[in-house]
Amino acid sequence: MDAITVEHLSKNYGVVQAVSDVSFRVAPGKIMGLLGGNGAGKTTTISMLLGLLVPSSGRIAVLGHDMAQDRFAALQVMNFSSPYIALPGRLTVRENLLVYGHLYNVKQLTRRIGELAEAFDLSGLLSRKAGELSAGQKTRVAMAKALINKPAVLLLDEPTASLDPDTGDYVRGWLERYRADSGCAMLLASHNMAEVERLCDDVLIMKQGRIVDQGTPDDLIARYGRDDLEAVFLDIARNRRVPVAS
């Protein structure tokens, strides 16, 4: 069974087509990168996967749970991290993790918070208010929140956007280990092409609401005759080059 199944997904706002006929699958234990410029439809796609947005047409299933019929069963085994959505700043880190632990019905919650505090070096921050933390510390807390329920499907929207290179590398390493240990499937939206090359098994490239290309990072780089994924991304964004025929 696929971890994520998306079939012919579309979203219209009146005459504006934000996402058009998008289909893809993510197998358990795989990381899918979602690339595209601003307005390409990445956030709209992720919002539909999270149930925040009702598709105009198409189907989404997460671990066999149809999002239209069985949304809350899917959300129970998923989680999400984005530096652009805050956690309550006046609550301490521990209180925030307790709140989300309750929302996700996490068993042995105190122990789980201890594990995450150790994993993300948060032990010294648990009693501090979330709003008083640095951007990098907030991102680590957001990652801990995203993993509170040991999700089988994790959606990540630029998870290392505000981290220094050292901490960003640490988070990427942690995600790799978590994927290897748990078999978690991930969908990663990122503008950090090196991060996508390192983490992702497959990449979808979106433009104007459509998937314009997809493949493994190495496959894309080879087909466009480039040295790295960033150059491929720029080729597609600027309509500079079509894939080299194989």
Partner: peptide, 14 residues
């Protein structure tokens, strides 16, 4: 105000 609704609405909270 705390920009927390996004997390709340993607949790299993009905």
């Amino acid at each position: 105000w705390s920009r927390n609704l996004g997390h709340v609405f993607v949790s299993p909270l009905r």
